[in-house]
Write a protein that binds this DNA or RNA. Structure first.
Lengths: 339, 339
DNA sequence: CCTGCGTTCCAAAACGTTTTGGAAAGGATA
DNA sequence: TATCCTTTCCAAAACGTTTTGGAACGCAGG
């Protein structure tokens, strides 16, 4: 059912029907009523493609899933997607999702989205310190918002957890509990957030006068296998750490498993801290101490910011850092050996 | 950069440029080369909206995420999404994702997708026995493919795990191990798959001459909390089951936790079986016996079938049942009390 | 009676493609 | 020379909207 058909039925012009439905003032109330009525009766729904073509916008925002993520490892992403999707849906914007294997194909997918005009704006997730996707979007002048910061030549719109503060706070808390040998299992260093987490950890160490020990620092992919491998290495050193700060809940749960396997009791002999507060964290045994992120809310904000960006809000007004409070559960406790 | 601009640059008509780029034979090789060359030089990419409008298709397929899923509980869905997304991307189709809260808004989202012509086809996930979404799509004559079967008035295109066979096989295996009191924690009964799983379980019991005991049957939402609640109830009955068949790995892991909390050893006193084979399953302690589904592959097939459906393949040729083989790990063993 | 001003309507252009139905030019055939 | 193909090109219509720039009408003020 098209506008033209509705117009013919009513003996009106398409112009009038269009303007009646879109609330213009140059159509009388009586005909407006007739039009709205008829439209509903015949089930008229505007053709989105035609609207978009005419308006010169796609009425959609794009997001790209690097498929590796999807490999079950991180429920995180689905949650983010749902947060974004719900809010966009309310704003009557489509969410166009592309899944591509991480690697060279990734940037191509962005190009296809942008240059084929399938999306008016892009949401970039899991930002890297040097991020070619962001460079590209800046070059093209495409509105975009990122989840996570990056090192860019000009300011960008982003939302991010304040991981530095969170890790500083957690580390400080562990120090307060008497820990001195605190290890960090960090994220891959190309991720911006990896640097933040490490910096927060180092901040707290410095404040307490504890030297950073490279032997207490490991890096891992953000999945459970990565967690077990890194934890295993750290825990089998001759003088092992008394506390483990993990980039991720998934990683932390991997560490927890290794500790159990090695016969190290948590939290008596080893404290473990995660990040994200996935539901799994609360249900682990012992329940995992972690830093909480409200991911769905972050997704929703991301969507709102994208709309704001499309509405012309300046990027400088679209930069948000979210607190990630420490949730102390059972996987942390006083350092062993009664300090 | 539009077709018109390219045409002007070359002193050709848009027709010729269009046809040159689309490989029609009524343009000479020399001009075709010139056109292709110029197009690449100025970075011409066709406007997808214009193409779509003209062709009368959206060049996109839609899928709707009931937001509840996203609640971290089930990595399943992300995996499916990635499988679908990758394949559609290769076919140069967009994937339009809507996230809406489960409930009345859900069907509206389908309507918006279909009637606004945002999608040429729809993928429906997590089918219910009586599924109004499917009824709607049939009524509208929209091509669609489902993940999971449903009770419909006419045949539909679907892909589904053969849960009945899988549950029958697992139950039979437990009986072989000497179990007689085998409980089933099933999915909510409105889901089609719930009936299949129960039927497979009952098939095996019947074959072994064991009567179905309603006290050994519970139903739960497909998340960890549901698993713990149902398992708790079943395990605290006076004569508790010696084996637990779970609708889901997530549910099974919940059950595992409860067993541990109640001091019931697995698998010595209680065998537990899951479904899906999430990576978490292999890493649980003890490692979970489960039925394997290759979800990403299912997603990919779903995408292929959608394309086939758009290409006119009959629904009867687009019905696939996938095996879900039993993966025996450490959470199952001989029935206690030496049968 | 003319002018000016609201009010209400509409024809036509535009968005960027694809496709239809020729047209022009050149060569071969009669 | 007239006719008929081939080859190569193109003008214009179409897809379904939104928007521009009036037009027609009635009415008040002069």
């Amino acid at each position: 059912m098209t506008l033209k058909r509705v117009a013919q039925d009513l003996n009106l012009s398409v112009t009038t029907v269009s303007r009646a439905l879109n609330g213009y003032s140059d159509v009388s109330e009586s005909t407006r009523e007739k039009v709205i009525d008829a439209a509903r009766r015949v089930g008229y729904v505007p053709n989105r493609l035609a609207q978009a073509l005419q308006r010169g916008t796609a009425e959609a925002v794009g997001i790209i899933l690097p498929s590796q993520f999807g490999h079950f490892e991180d429920p995180f992403f689905l949650e983010l997607l749902v947060g974004i999707g719900e809010r966009l849906h309310n704003a009557n914007l489509d969410l166009v999702v592309c899944a591509v294997p991480e690697g060279p194909a990734e940037l191509d997918a962005y190009k296809r989205l942008v240059e084929g005009r399938r999306a008016d704006a892009i949401i970039v997730a899991r930002t890297r310190r040097q991020d070619e996707r962001i460079d590209y979007l800046i070059d093209r002048g495409v509105p975009f918002v990122t989840h996570g910061r990056a090192e860019t030549r000009e300011p960008i719109a982003f939302i991010d957890a304040d991981a530095r503060t969170a890790f500083r706070r957690s580390t400080r808390r562990l120090i307060e509990l008497g820990h001195r040998r605190i290890a960090l299992i960090g994220a891959p260093e190309e991720l911006f957030t990896a640097g933040e987490r490490k910096a927060g950890y180092e901040d707290a160490l410095r404040e307490a006068g504890i030297a950073f020990d490279p032997n207490l620092y490991a890096v891992t992919k953000l999945n459970e296998r990565g967690g077990t491998a890194a934890a295993e290495r750290l825990l089998q050193a001759e003088t092992r750490p008394t506390a483990l700060l993990c980039a991720n809940d998934t990683v932390a749960l991997g560490a927890l498993r290794i500790a159990r396997r090695l016969g190290i009791t948590v939290p008596e002999e080893l404290s473990i801290v995660g990040f994200d507060d996935l539901p799994m964290a609360a249900q682990a045994e012992p329940a995992l101490t972690t830093m909480r992120q409200d991911i769905r809310r972050a997704g929703a904000r991301l969507a709102e910011m994208t709309c704001a960006r499309l509405g012309g809000t300046a990027v400088n007004d679209l930069q948000e850092l979210l607190e990630a409070p420490l949730i102390e559960r059972e996987s942390t406790g006083p350092a062993p050996g009664g300090a």
